[in-house]
Write a protein that binds this DNA or RNA. Sequence first.
DNA 1: CTGGATCCCAACCGATACTG
DNA 2: CAGTATCGGTTGGGATCCAG
Lengths: 134, 134
Amino acid sequence: MTASPGSASPARYDEIDPRVEALVQDLIAQVADKWTMILIEVLHDHGEQRFTRIAQKVPDISQKMLTQTLRRMERNGLVCRTVHPVVPPRVDYRLTALGESLGEAFCGVWEWAQAHLDTVETARQGFDGRKADA
Amino acid sequence: MTASPGSASPARYDEIDPRVEALVQDLIAQVADKWTMILIEVLHDHGEQRFTRIAQKVPDISQKMLTQTLRRMERNGLVCRTVHPVVPPRVDYRLTALGESLGEAFCGVWEWAQAHLDTVETARQGFDGRKADA
DNA sequence: CTGGATCCCAACCGATACTG
DNA sequence: CAGTATCGGTTGGGATCCAG
């Protein structure tokens, strides 16, 4: 906790209320991770899916991470989880409106990354080259 | 590596080229972390800053993380590092155009988080409450 | 003042095994 | 089928000390 109670924090990262700042950062941390972004994409593209189907679409994710990520997304209101009370259990996951809106917000970063892939690559080579020439 | 050589990957996360996909995700992973976002904000708001000044603005960051993050940002072409050859060393960091553009891309996510803070909070309480009622 | 090197702990994540 | 529980390896990140 960096909570300095009544003491006037001189200059925070911004002019923003530090408490809101912390909340926002926490939220971003929970929501901006690799698997969350991927799952949003999958659910956006293919609509409601059951657990195993999602796992098939994202072969590199472990079942643990899939469960964990879906749970957190559900808790944050990003996905809606529907349990069908049938004998072989069946659970469907669907993106909520909130989840969809987050997906759109991510588009900016995603597009930035795509657009500047080579620029970054050039920068990296320049940097690495500079370090190499002893 | 998830490189399945020649085997036809049936349906990837999207219709996107998996190689590009991987690169983009790697880039996002390097660039979308907590400290990078904060440092972009600080440098955007206050312009060119020297090492210690930045550390002061972000009290919760360790000196190790600050150096590490700045280095990676420099390598990725997000910041420009200027070393002044004076007797007490002085190093200035400034956001590049690329860094600025990334900051703008982040705005979307940032604004989403701010806008939906309470929505998410409500969702969380609903979720937690549902789990509690045994 | 800047930042590299080291130690060490905690959180993350994958693999496996077990339950309803 | 859809999870939970547990163990172990890997990484992230803080504290401290040291060098240029």
